[in-house]
Amino acid sequence: MAEAYLQVIAHYFVKPGNGDAIVKPLTELAAATRAEPKNLYYELFRSPLDPDHFVILEQYSSADGLAEHRETEHFQHLGFGTIIPLLDRREVASHMFPGDAA
């Protein structure tokens, strides 16, 4: 029986010409996030057509996993402190996967 989990899909649109500047902090954030207790999956992808567009796929073992992730020291420092200031915009959608019905 599959367990319920939170799926997050984030689109990061970097200020023009700054795509290369966030690769290293995004990679560091990914590594730190994968070590979080409620994180099940974290991968990032860069568009081959637009080097300033990134997609991040995340899964957490519970609905509060994303909120807890946003409170971590690494997200506060890398996310809010380094990455987000370089973005034109970000679009984040969260969806619960209910798991198998009992």
Rank of each mutant, 00 (worst) to 15 (best):
G17M: 14
P25Q: 13
G19I: 02
L26P: 02
L87P: 04
F54Q: 01
D52C: 02
A31I: 13
A32T: 08
L66Y: 14
P85Q: 09
E3A: 12
E58V: 00
D88R: 08
A67I: 03
T27N: 11
P16G: 11
H74F: 07
L49M: 05
A30K: 07
P48N: 09
P25V: 13
G17Q: 13
A32E: 14
Q59M: 10
L29P: 06
Y5G: 00
Q7C: 12
D50C: 05
A31R: 15
E3W: 06
Q76T: 15
N39W: 00
R90L: 13
Y60P: 02
E73I: 09
P37E: 14
E58F: 03
I84C: 06
P37Q: 13
L6M: 14
I83A: 08
G81C: 12
Y5H: 14
A31K: 15
I56K: 00
L57C: 09
E43T: 04
F54G: 01
D88W: 03
L40G: 08
N18S: 13
H69K: 05
A2F: 06
F75A: 10
R90N: 11
L26A: 12
Q59Y: 03
D64Y: 07
N39C: 15
S61E: 08
A10E: 00
F80Y: 13
L6D: 04
